[in-house]
């Protein structure tokens, strides 16, 4: 991992949340490994993955926390919301109950992250059209009402998985560009490769340029 640690300009912290069995770990695995993991063991507490993406010519490292969906782990998983720049809130289009619980997940996400955290709603298992239990339209409407990005995706086929992570990143990047996301604020969930050393966790560089590295 030490081969090229600095070939990115930003680090965005993501969390993936949602009910058990909706495919959170599979989405992450598909995104980082480009493979579908059919028999994914339960996530215990929180697991971790990274990948570098590119938005508007900027390399961005996503630092992704995949949380356990089970209620009993909430005490542990809640502590990982802090400082997330993006949240992927996942439900399973074939199980309405996972959709019905979104408001509770959203409440957690809103309460435990900062107001600028970009939340993208993802209806996973879009390949299982025949078993669909939640329509695209109603989810879309829910997303709009709550100011969420929205996509249906399939961790199995890979459909829209890249986009899910990218769309959120674009939105975060846009927030940085237009100044609505203050990188100085604690817990913005974004870390910028600094142009000058700063105290504290985050560095201020609201208008990032390409830095003189392998970007």
């Amino acid at each position: 991992m030490a081969t090229a640690p600095y070939n990115y300009s930003y680090i965005f912290k993501y969390i993936i949340i949602g009910d058990m069995g909706v495919g959170k770990s599979c989405l992450l695995h598909q995104f980082t490994e480009k493979k579908f993991m059919a028999d994914c063991p339960h996530t215990i507490g929180v697991e971790f993955g990274t990948r570098i993406i590119e938005v508007s010519g900027q390399k961005i490292k996503l630092q992704i926390w995949d949380t356990a969906g089970q209620e009993r782990f909430r005490a542990v998983t809640r502590s990982y919301y802090r400082g997330a720049a993006g949240a992927l809130m996942v439900y399973d289009i074939t199980r309405r109950s996972t959709y019905n619980h979104l408001s509770s997940w959203l409440t957690d996400a809103r309460n435990l992250t900062n107001p600028n955290t970009v939340i993208i709603l993802i209806g996973n298992k879009a390949d299982l059209e025949a078993q669909r239990d939640v329509t695209y339209e109603e989810a879309k409407q829910f997303a709009e009402e709550n100011g969420l990005l929205f996509l249906e995706a399939s961790a199995k086929t890979g459909e829209n998985v890249e986009d899910a992570f990218l769309e959120a990143a674009k939105k975060i990047y846009q927030n940085i560009q237009d100044g609505s996301l203050d990188l100085n604020a604690a817990e913005s969930g974004v870390q910028h490769k600094p142009s000058a050393p700063q105290g504290g966790r985050l560095t201020s560089e609201p208008q990032p340029q390409k830095e003189g590295c392998g970007c």
């Binding site: 600095y6 050393p197 966790r201 003189g212």
Partner: peptide, 14 residues
Amino acid sequence: DFQVLSSKEILSIA
């Protein structure tokens, strides 16, 4: 190559 990297911050992230 990394004049800008005097901050320990990125190091610690990596």
